[in-house]
Every structure is written in structure tokens, then in C-alpha cells.
Amino acid sequence: MDYLLNGFIRAFGLLFGGDPETFSAIWTTVAVSTLSIVACLAAGIPLGFLLGHNDFRGKKALRTVVDTLLSFPTVVIGLVVYAFLSNRGPLGDLELLFTIPGIAIGQFMLGMPIVVAMTANAVESQDRRLKPTLITLGASKRQMLTATILETRYSLMLAAVAAYGRIVSEVGISMMVGGNIKWHTRTITTAIALETGKGEFDTGIALGMVLLAVAFAVNIGVSMLKRRAGQ
């Protein structure tokens, strides 16, 4: 058990000593997850709103597709994105394979169904009295749209937090599309996988602690927002 204890001690040393390799993985994770969550929210919230707000033919089938995408394995997404971005793929000319934007594309595919599904759910489960209340208060169509988005704000934040939690903790996409290149595309999760494989537990534990802290913050955020959304 000593190696675990020593691993923890050395992990603190790496974190508080500002180890460049450890912080490179942390920085890459922050950069790629920020890029992907921004894209997820920008595309996912309007799509989710449209899906939840409108009734149209094929809506149920579309909801089923979105729900299926929620449980899509990250390695399969990684495989698809790799196939598209590789030299032989249709988007090979963009030279995005083994780059941060490349990983962000894969993570976007992972996070967007979560944002779309949760936004649609939030809009569908909106209080039935909201619309008549807004009409009787004299709101225009634009004011009604704005007010409806404001009313679902906690649920939208919940969607963002849930999607971020999934994005930041995935390993399959980052490994396959990013290639786990040191100083370049090595994220926290791919670094943990690599370092553990090499028997370097201290770096793995240090990065694991950062990831756990992120997961902890995400979970606190989720429970707080759930409470607010339910009030």
C-alpha cells in the first residue's frame, strides 16, 4: 500500500509545485472542454427549444434519436470523428486530426444530445400557466420567448453542467481523435490512462484529484440547480 500513499504525497508535490507536464494536461482539458461546451450550448439550446416547443410530424422519432445519442459510447464517437478527420476522410483537408479543435468536434457530438434533450424536456415540462399568464400581462411574442427562456434558466444551466461533466470526464474521444500527444493534445483523462499504464501513479493520482474536484463541483452545481429549477 506504500506506493499508493507515496503516490498521493508526490501528487500533492506535482500540483502545488506547479509541474509543467501536469499543468499542460490540465490546461489542454480546460481549453478543449470550454470550446466544446460553448459550441454545445450555442447549437443545443436553440435546437432543444425548437424540439420542445413545437409539435410536428416525426417529433417522437426525433426524440428517440436524441435519446439514443445520449448513451452513445465515446469510443464510437471517436471512431466516427477520426474517420471523418483522417487524411482519407471527407474532412481530411481541414487537418483537424490530433488537434484541440478536432477533439472539441468529438466532444461536441457527445455533449450536444444532452443539451438538446434536457432543453426540450425543460420546455415541455414548463408550467401550463406560464403562457396564459404572459398573454394576460400583455407580453408580445418576442417578450414571451424571452420570458420563457428566462423561466427555464435553471434547467438550461443544469443541462450545461451535466453536459460539461460528461465532456470533461470522457477519455475515448480525446485518446482517438487527439492522439494523446504530450504538450499538445494530452488531456487529464488520457494522461491518467497513460501514466497508470506506465506505473507512474503519482501523476495519475494528481490529475485524478483535479478531475474529482471538477466532478465534485459539477455535482454540487447540479444539485443546487435542480433545487432551484424545482422551486
Binding site: 399568464t133 394576460t136 434558466r153
Partner: peptide
């Protein structure tokens, strides 16, 4: 014209 609904609804504000 305005209507006060039987079950009033307040915005989350």
C-alpha cells in the same frame, strides 16, 4: 384586458 387565473402563476423572479 387582463385575467387573474384561478391558480395564479408567478414568474421565477
Amino acid at each position: 384586458v387582463t385575467l387573474l387565473l384561478q391558480e395564479p402563476f408567478l414568474l421565477k423572479q
